[in-house]
């Protein structure tokens, strides 16, 4: 009995390790970034390390625009796909699609970015004009990256709906689609909203693929069209960390962007778990 207690304590320490890492992350990010975090940082319009100006508002906005578009595209494809998977698909096909989706989650983002660079950007440049590196390219690439997350999370939500709901509806003479539309999806909607919120979190954090296609202008501006080049939060860190002098305001500003990303993700996670999915938190 005693040995069991010790085992459970050791295992608890292991399980707490993730929590410890999250706390260490925020402590160490704040250690470097706190001095740069202020109103001018969040609301400043100009990012220009040469002039010692670190305003991330255009970058924040760029992130928002790229992520919003990508999530809309990914939701438009991903949710129907999840519905098909959960409700209409024969077993072998479901197994195959699920496997594809699971592999897709891990496909190296740098390869997707490379695809964007070589295929999507020239396509946009040749057909729509501009430099090709654009919000539009970001949408497409990021939608590809977000799609598997949206699909697997919403499929979970749909499959969590009890079979008895479906049987009840079918027994009343409803067609399969009516059942899905009127009995299943409404019950799954909170789970699917949570899926989309979590998908937004993943998309905000995506670095490489987006970085390679959105252009990252030296001094970002407020975008005016889908062919504009933009910067996103993640790409700013990735591109500039290697030439930001250690201990300079520039480095602090980059860590401050890390802090902003951290809190965006934590906030979205809080919303997804406690606000939207609260009632099946224990399930």
């Amino acid at each position: 009995m005693k040995r069991g207690d010790i085992a459970s304590k050791i295992l608890f320490l292991c399980a707490s390790f993730s929590t410890l890492i999250v706390f260490l992350i925020i402590i160490f990010l704040l250690r470097e970034g706190i001095s740069a975090l202020n109103w001018n940082f969040l609301m400043g319009m100009v990012w220009s390390p040469h002039k010692n100006l670190y305003g991330i508002f255009p970058t924040l906005l760029g992130t928002l625009v790229v992520v919003a578009g990508a999530i809309i595209i990914a939701t438009a494809i991903g949710v129907p796909c999840a519905v098909f998977l959960a409700e209409f698909s024969p077993f072998w096909l479901r197994n195959m699609i699920k496997s594809t989706v699971e592999v897709l989650v891990g496909v190296p983002s740098v390869v997707i970015g490379f695809f964007g660079l070589i295929v999507i950007i020239p396509f946009i440049r040749n057909n729509l004009g501009g430099r090709g590196e654009s919000i539009l390219a970001g949408w497409i690439v990021l939608a590809i990256m977000s799609l598997p997350h949206i699909i697997s999370l919403s499929e979970d939500a749909i499959r969590a709906v009890p079979t008895s709901y479906r049987q009840a509806s079918l027994a009343l003479g409803a067609t399969k689609w009516q059942t899905v539309r009127r009995a299943v999806l409404p019950s799954a909607s909170s789970g699917m909203r949570a899926a989309i919120v979590l998908g937004v979190g993943r998309a905000v954090g995506e670095t490489m693929a987006v970085l390679m296609v959105v252009g990252n202008p030296e001094t970002p501006w407020i975008p005016t069209g889908v062919l504009d080049r933009v910067r996103v939060l993640t790409s700013t860190i990735a591109i500039e960390f290697s030439y930001a002098e250690w201990g300079s305001p520039h480095q602090y500003a980059l860590f401050a962007i890390g802090v902003v990303l951290f809190f965006i993700v934590v906030a979205l996670n809080l919303v997804a778990t406690f606000v939207i999915r609260r009632r099946n938190w224990n399930g």
Partner: peptide
């Protein structure tokens, strides 16, 4: 513990890199 494990799962890789 569960919440923070989920949070770590959603942590942007660039943030983990910075850390």
């Amino acid at each position: 513990v569960r919440f923070f494990t989920e949070t770590l799962a959603g942590m942007p890789s660039i943030v983990i890199g910075l850390f």
